[in-house]
């Protein structure tokens, strides 16, 4: 159903497109559009950009050349800052950075030199959720096993304080009284998961999309080692890895947690719902932004792209720029005391 609506939206959008295309087409003709990726080549963000690169041009009026430029630094903060502050604002530059930077802004983290509310969001690739998993040999089978004073402690690996792999377990600790012991400093997501595979730690937290695409082998088959014990959000997606796994917001309601607790769970998970976003700097003219939003919608619906994504095990749930903006706004308007508490938790 969701998919059908999506297709309808694309069709409607393409009708609307023909109206204002003329000037936009003149502008983009013969031009080069750069997708500035905030990470080095080879990772998920880069691969997604390069997948798009193949199909995007034909959906933009004027068929400009598309190139991918890697600008790693500060967990993609450098790219987000640069595109916002110094790159041309004529519609030839698209930024692709981590949606978790919006949390950084909300928490007044150092180094953020953009306002996510003013970024013109074009699209996002995945609607995912934070989740934590533990090793099956750890004697923990349910989140309840580690909750409360008599719960067992579970050591989980993390690759960056304040980042997704750290913020998830500490928020679960704060809301549910779970006893995740977070060890930071692992080199990247791959290093984080290696520590689980070689049983240096007993668990890890990441997005569900990550394990679906990259690590299904940890959850099924001969080398299966782990089990999901909790997933963020209000509902649990239909998936074989998630049978019997509680949704964090439902669980919080059941346990009678406060409104602020719920707000914190939502704020923590918001970036995962707009995973792999792309955006254009403020000041890019509305018609070019619109053209680009439509182009991305069509690119994500492109059969070529979908085939490639399917081959890679990627379960796309793209969002339009408008939807992304809404989620960003929601996140930024999280009540101040909740943000303050969140900030305290990750320090």
């Amino acid at each position: 159903m969701k998919k059908k609506l999506w297709c309808l939206a694309v069709v409607l959008a393409s009708f609307a497109a023909s109206a204002s295309a003329a000037t936009v087409e003149d502008f983009y003709k013969g031009k080069t559009i750069r997708i500035v990726v905030g990470f080095g080549p080879g990772g998920a963000t880069d691969t997604n950009a390069r997948l798009l690169q193949r199909v995007l041009s034909k959906h933009i009026p004027g068929n400009p050349t598309i190139v991918v430029e890697n600008k790693p630094g500060g967990g993609s903060l450098l790219a987000a800052n640069t595109v916002y502050t110094t790159e041309p604002r004529d519609g030839t530059v698209i930024a692709s950075f981590s949606s978790h930077l919006v949390v950084n802004q909300a928490l007044d983290a150092p180094g953020v030199r953009f306002d996510a509310a003013k970024y013109q969001w074009i699209a996002s690739a995945f609607d995912s959720s934070a989740m934590c998993a533990v090793r099956t040999d750890s004697a923990v089978t349910r989140i309840e096993d580690i909750m409360g004073d008599r719960g067992k402690e579970v050591v989980v690996s993390s690759f960056g304080k304040g980042g997704l792999s750290h913020i998830e377990p500490v928020v679960f600790n704060a809301v549910f009284g779970a006893r995740f012991k977070v060890i930071t400093g692992y080199p990247g997501g791959a290093g984080q998961r290696l520590a689980v595979k070689n049983s240096e730690v007993q668990g890890f937290c990441t997005t569900f999309e990550t394990i679906k695409t990259l690590e299904p082998g940890m959850f099924e088959g001969p080398a299966a080692c782990c089990k999901v014990i909790i997933i963020a959000g209000a509902d649990v997606e239909e998936h074989r890895f998630l049978r019997g796994v509680p949704a964090a917001e439902k669980l919080a309601e059941k346990l009678g947690k406060s409104k602020d607790d719920l707000a914190m769970l939502r704020a923590m998970n918001a970036p995962n719902r707009i995973s792999l976003p792309v955006a254009m700097a403020p000041g890019v003219s509305e018609e070019r932004v619109d053209a680009m939003r439509r182009a991305f919608q069509k690119a994500y619906a492109d059969l070529d792209f979908q085939a490639a994504a399917k081959k890679m095990n990627m379960d796309l749930q793209p969002k339009t720029g408008v939807e992304v903006s809404r989620i960003v706004q929601e996140l930024l308007s999280t009540p101040k005391p909740v943000l303050a508490r969140l900030k305290e938790l990750i320090q």
Partner: peptide, 27 residues
């Protein structure tokens, strides 16, 4: 086999592996 690239180049090879629809893992 473990999805842990040691350098920029092997990170890209891992990307290529995924693009080919191959799942990294001991199997």
């Amino acid at each position: 086999a473990f999805g842990v690239p040691g350098s920029a180049t092997t990170a890209i090879l891992l990307g290529a592996f995924m693009i080919q629809g191959l799942q990294p893992g001991p199997k």
